[in-house]
Design a protein around this nucleic acid. Structure first.
Lengths: 242, 242
DNA sequence: CGTAGACTTGAGGCTCGTCAATTGCCGTGG
DNA sequence: CCACGGCAATTGACGAGCCTCAAGTCTACG
């Protein structure tokens, strides 16, 4: 049930058997959310912490004029909202990109297992720090990279993250994001994302089939994006054994 | 010495006398860094954690083509790098915006006091979550707001944060950022920042004197920026008594 | 089949960037 | 005291990158 989480935390901390058992024993409700439906909406009062078990989830903020910015893409093993227990109400929403399974965990349980195991406490903290590192890299992209490079950078990031989860098939991966959603990640319009993807295809860097992304030249993508995977490498830990 | 930190953590957690004492007893070196010099440079091996005691510090990333993006502005009481002890080497730099005093703390000390006090552990965690919330709001700004609104939003954020630190004088504040630095925060060029500041002045929203920002119409600024201070209000806690 | 949603493509326009020159402010030194 | 150099702020002209609007295609699905 929570193997995704155990696997993720294992890559950044040396969990004892007791730690793993504590994670495995986490009581939780399971919830399934169909694609394109909110997992949590802005304004909701969060009571339980959401953990992604299967599928993709996006964190987003909608401004008054209707434009949307996606501020995180969450994959299996990622927490949606370790932080929101501090907030009165959600200041942003979370939407399912694919059909999704999430676990709902009581915050008290997390407080308990982290107060019992310093290793676990540190592991959770590291998970937060990893989220922050990704957020920083997104800010750099949106603030200072060209449209083409932003998209290349996103592809590189997903390539690394999905690789750690064992979700690559021959270096390629399923990409459930629509072009509008990609646009909302990188701060562009879907029209321009479309044009930039065409550029990448014409350049022989990628190939696309519906819902599928084929990486033809990862080196060129990384160079184009000025991709520095230090933030992911060291935070995600060594590559898992196959 | 570390009152800034104690004050900050007090606003988000109910610290016991022992907690305050533990914070006050933190052994540390003091370091002074003159304006426009790096506090830590990209590539450095971080050994101690930096805590800002006085002045402004900026976190930044420089891309290969030389452009810079500032990813955080740190004020007194903020940690520079709670996270970097996990990294092999800094993947970004920290630069002093003003003359700055920072405390250097051994990570082991933090581990120790947080393992002794669950309250403190939570307080440190919350501090990280606050950084993340600000980062998210910056991403939304840079990704989806107009140039004018981005700058207005930054002014609103600084207004709230400085207010909590008691660094406002009659609703106005000292702004040590150059226009180039503002540009690096909001993802624009200094030329365009200059034009937008002129717009804000012409609109009667702000007034400027060298190094000083006068807020003439905070309501208009907030409306223009679509400023939602939920993320800061609840995370920074109730307004301190005067 | 018929509809809805995503993708695709083109034409034209606006925001913001680039380049360049000028001003003003300081601190420094003759 | 004034000349000088450096840096930030300011302004204009021009151009580019990205957005807007709009139409059309493709696919999935009822």
């Amino acid at each position: 049930m929570t193997e995704a989480l155990i696997r993720k935390l294992s890559t950044i901390a040396d969990l004892s058997e007791a730690d793993r058992a504590a994670l495995g024993d986490l009581k939780h409700y399971m919830r399934e959310v169909p694609a394109r439906r909110d997992v949590i909406s802005e304004g909701d009062k969060p009571v339980r912490v959401h953990l992604v078990l299967e599928g993709w989830v996006a964190r987003y903020k909608v401004l008054r004029n209707g434009v949307r910015q996606i501020t995180a893409i969450l994959l299996p093993g990622d927490f949606c909202d370790l932080h929101v227990t501090i907030l009165d109400a959600m200041d942003h929403g979370m939407v399912a990109i694919t059909n999704v399974k999430v676990a709902l965990i009581q915050p008290e349980q997390l407080v308990e297992i982290t107060s019992r195991s310093a290793t676990l406490a540190q592991a959770f903290w590291w998970a937060t720090l990893l989220d922050e590192a990704i957020l920083r890299s997104w800010l750099v992209s949106v603030g200072r990279r060209s449209a083409e490079a932003r998209i290349a950078h996103l592809i590189c990031e997903l390539h690394v993250r999905l690789s750690r989860l064992g979700l690559l098939t021959g270096g390629n991966f399923a990409l459930p994001l629509t072009q509008q959603e990609i646009a909302d990640v990188v701060g562009l319009t879907s029209v321009h994302v479309n044009r930039m993807l065409r550029l990448l295809r014409k350049g022989g860097l990628i190939e696309q089939r519906p819902g599928q992304m084929y990486i033809l030249d990862i080196g060129a993508l990384r160079r184009l994006a000025d991709f520095d995977d230090n933030y992911l490498h060291t935070l995600l830990g060594p590559k898992p054994k196959p």
